[in-house]
Design a binder for these strands. Structure first.
Length: 289
DNA sequence: ATCATATGCTAAT
DNA sequence: TTAGCCTATGATA
């Protein structure tokens, strides 16, 4: 679940459901018990997301969370006592809602200096407003200098922050880019198209709590956001969309062996940088810029 | 019951 | 490049 859109939706939801309240903080699982005690009874001032990192400010204390591959951070109504399976690493309880963190890669108290050093290592985030206009150029700076494959660079959080394996595979397909194209051979104009697409796709993913990359779904979702017809303000801002979702459909992600929906060639997979890349060898060919 | 896999990332080799 | 970490889930036995 966790690419950038998930973390941004989570930050917004934490602010909406627990923001400003003094919380009962605990570590049912025990591994975070000492730090949880320090947070207990403090007000949650602000939750902030950048890329896949989440920072929660409790007055002068900062909680740094990264979900990694399998982490989850569920926010639910306090009346629903049913805690699933294993005890949570961290539990935040407010008047109306409870948030439970499980399996995070990072859950630690940090200071402002630590936070800044994390942020300094991140590339532009398509979900961070100030980055949206300048991000194409900043990331291009890195890409244009690299001989690494663009598929590799897209997962490098210091190049672009927040993109994970699904968005990388799908956005490369959407622009018919050969994943193995070296960064320096991609071309600035093509990269700008990719960046601008990410600036549209990630916020939609955040609003709908779902990665949407099929154009018909992207169009439908964008229209819902634009006219606000079936999407409440809250949903648009926090990704708090219970119930109906779009059908789960992708161009290449996890479609190995199936025919490409555009050209019919068989979708392939290959490990690159320890992650499974999915792509269509027909649509995604090397091209001259 | 057991195994493989997962929308991440780091440290060790 | 690989091992390791953290947990949930779906496939396989």
């Amino acid at each position: 679940m966790p690419e950038g859109h998930t973390i941004h939706a989570l930050a917004a939801r934490l602010n909406r459901t627990l923001g400003g309240e003094r919380l009962a903080v605990s570590s049912p699982q025990g591994r975070f018990a000492a730090d949880a005690a320090l947070l207990d009874g403090r007000p949650l001032d602000q939750a902030t997301a950048r890329g896949k990192h989440l920072f929660i400010d409790f007055e002068d204390l900062i909680l740094h969370v990264h979900l990694g591959l399998i982490g989850s951070f569920h926010v639910k109504h306090a009346v629903q006592y049913d805690s699933p399976g294993t005890p949570a690493r961290l539990r935040l309880e407010g008047r109306s809602h409870v948030a439970e963190l499980r399996g995070p890669m990072i859950c630690a108290l940090v200071d402002e200096e630590d936070r800044q050093s994390v942020l300094a290592k991140l590339g532009p985030d398509p979900l961070h407003r100030p980055d949206q206009d300048t991000g194409a150029l900043r990331s291009w700076d890195r890409i244009a200098r690299s001989r690494k494959a663009i598929a590799d660079l897209l997962l490098d959080q210091s190049v672009v922050a927040g993109v994970g394996n699904v968005y990388r595979c799908e956005v490369l397909f959407r622009h018919r880019i050969d994943p193995f194209t070296p960064g320096k051979e991609l071309g600035r104009v093509l990269w700008e198209r990719v960046w601008n697409d990410l600036v549209i796709l990630l916020p939609l993913g955040m609003a709908f709590s779902q990665i949407l990359t099929m154009q018909d779904q992207v169009d439908a979702a964008a229209e819902m956001v634009a006219d606000g017809s079936s999407l409440s303000i809250t949903e648009a801002l926090t990704g708090e969309r219970l119930g109906d979702h779009f059908e789960r459909r992708f161009h290449t992600y996890k479609r190995t062996g199936q025919p490409c929906d555009r050209c019919g060639r068989i979708v392939r997979e290959q490990l690159i940088g320890g992650r499974t890349l999915y792509w269509c060898p027909g649509c995604q060919r090397r091209r001259r810029r």
